[in-house]
Simulated assay, not measured.
Amino acid sequence: MWISAVVAAGVLLSGCGAGPAPAEPDASARPISTGGGIIPEPFAAVLATVDEHARDRHDRVEAETVRCMAAQGFTYTPLPFWQREQRFQRFGDIEHASRYGFGLSPEEDRRGRQDSLPDDTAKLSSQEKEAWFRALLGDMDSPNRIRIEHRDGSVSEGPGEGCDIESQQALYGDYRAWRVAQVSFEELDHLVRQGTDSDPAWQRALADWRSCMTDAGYARYATDSRVEASELLSEEHRRGRVYEPDTVVPVDPADAKHEREVAVASATCEKKLGMADTYARVQAVHEKKVSETEQGVITGYLELVVTGTAKAGGEVEASPSTA
């Protein structure tokens, strides 16, 4: 039954009464298999449930938007489904580093995926265009716009009416509640990563990595993290040139070769030091901590996902990894 997704959340949160997690991971603990250096995202069980019927939910929302816009006399071309992009840490993956470096030279330019769609407002007058956008997104000055307060004190704002919102309400019910739940859950990922990156055990691993990179002749890139090393390489690629936002920086073949060399050196050090297992083990500790303190956020978000999936005609089964 579709409600089994909530059971998945319960499994993810199990063990909450076992007492507080240790301040640091036990170095003698059984290593966590990382599949060749790929560290899974936090809350993988929840994300798997979210992704399982994502296309069904997307298609239902877009169909509702088409219907809503047509009722107001407008044409709306539904957006294609794009799978949520996975974010993975890669530590010690020498083969991947030798092929792709730090990923600064994209295999393909993904710009313009949405820009390539037909412009439904191309033949409309300026007044008609304004009416089209108002029908889709509501009045920008409306008091019904949704304001979300984030953990860091910042506030984001978005439409609270219009066909885009009505179509999602048809799926999720109270759209405000859905959006707040979604943002709150996404912020848990940040909490886990923040805790993991600042953990003493991981900081010691980074110190060892910097020493290894220095010994390998890449002291310039022995920064606070491999991410900063890649950012330094990116700055070198630019050579002071300024590019428009969302444009791909062209990479000279010599730069790409150098990037791969640095990335391989980094991956070699990471593999030698067992950094993939260290990061996965530390992340698991902080994921558990966040899960224990944020049960309501996780369960509330999953319940809304399950509701939307059921309305879209899908069924969510608990996967073997969460059942």
Rank of each mutant, 00 (worst) to 15 (best):
D164E: 15
D56R: 11
A201T: 14
V262R: 00
R30F: 01
S321E: 15
A177T: 01
T278W: 00
F81V: 06
S225L: 01
I38E: 14
G15N: 03
V183M: 02
P253Q: 07
T49H: 10
R226V: 10
Q168H: 11
P22A: 08
D119Y: 05
V6W: 03
E244R: 15
R30Q: 10
H258C: 02
G92T: 09
T322F: 02
A9H: 05
A45D: 15
E317D: 13
A312F: 11
R84Q: 14
A18M: 10
A131I: 01
K289L: 12
G274N: 01
T309C: 11
F185K: 04
G195Y: 00
L302K: 06
V180M: 00
V251K: 03
H286F: 06
V227I: 07
G112D: 12
K257V: 10
V285A: 08
S211L: 11
A45G: 07
R238N: 06
G195P: 07
H53G: 04
R110Y: 11
G158A: 12
D208S: 12
Q86D: 13
V50I: 02
Q72N: 06
G15Y: 01
A207M: 03
P118D: 06
R239L: 08
K272L: 05
Y100K: 14
P245T: 12
A18D: 13
G153V: 00
N144W: 03
W82M: 13
V50W: 06
A44M: 07
L171S: 10
F185Q: 04
L13P: 00
H237T: 02
A181T: 05
G313M: 12
L104W: 04
S14A: 14
G35S: 05
Q283K: 12
C269K: 08
E294A: 14
E62L: 05
A71N: 09
V297L: 04
E270D: 09
C68L: 09
S167Y: 08
G296C: 05
V285T: 13
R84F: 01
V66L: 04
V316E: 14
A207H: 06
E315C: 12
F88Y: 12
P20G: 01
Q283R: 15
W209S: 03
D246S: 08
L47Q: 13
D152V: 03
D246K: 11
Y172F: 15
A254N: 03
D189E: 10
H150T: 02
G112L: 09
R260S: 06
P25K: 05
G195Q: 01
G17I: 02
R147L: 14
A48S: 13
L302I: 14
R111V: 01
F185M: 04
Y301R: 10
T34N: 09
Q127H: 04
